[in-house]
Simulated scan of single mutants.
Amino acid sequence: MVRLSNNLLGILNVVVFVLSIPIFIAGVWLANQASSECEKFLDKPMIVLGVFLMAVSLAGIIGACCRVSCLLWLYLCVMFILILLIFCFTVFAFVVTNKGAGEAVSGRGYKEYKLGDYSHWLQKRVESGKNWDRIRSCVQESKVCQKLANKGDSVQQFFRQNLSPLQSGCCKPPTECNLQYVNATYWSGKISPGSADNQDCKEWNNDPSVLCYNCNSCKAGILASIKDDWKKVAIVNVVFLVFLVIVYSIGCCAFRNNRNDNYYMKR
Rank of each mutant, 00 (worst) to 15 (best):
L211K: 05
Q199R: 15
I191T: 15
D207N: 15
C201F: 04
N198H: 12
E203I: 15
K172R: 12
P193Y: 04
I191A: 13
K172H: 05
N206P: 00
D207F: 14
S209G: 10
N183A: 09
P208G: 12
G194L: 02
W187Y: 11
T175Q: 06
C170G: 12
G194W: 12
Q199F: 11
D197L: 10
C171W: 00
C201G: 11
T175F: 03
N205H: 08
K172A: 07
C170H: 06
L211F: 11
G169I: 14
G189D: 02
G169C: 14
D200A: 05
C171S: 05
S192F: 05
K172L: 06
P193H: 03
L211T: 02
N205L: 00
W204S: 04
G189L: 02
S188M: 01
G189M: 01
S168V: 07
V182W: 10
N206T: 06
V182Y: 11
K172E: 03
S195V: 01
D200S: 09
N198E: 14
L179Q: 01
N178D: 10
C201M: 03
Y181R: 02
W204D: 04
C177A: 03
C177E: 01
L179S: 01
C177I: 02
S188D: 14
D197P: 07
P208A: 09
V210T: 14
T175H: 06
V210K: 13
G169Q: 13
D207H: 09
D200C: 09
T185A: 06
P208S: 07
P174I: 09
P173S: 03
S195G: 05
D197V: 02
Q199H: 15
A184P: 11
L179N: 01
W187A: 09
V210G: 04
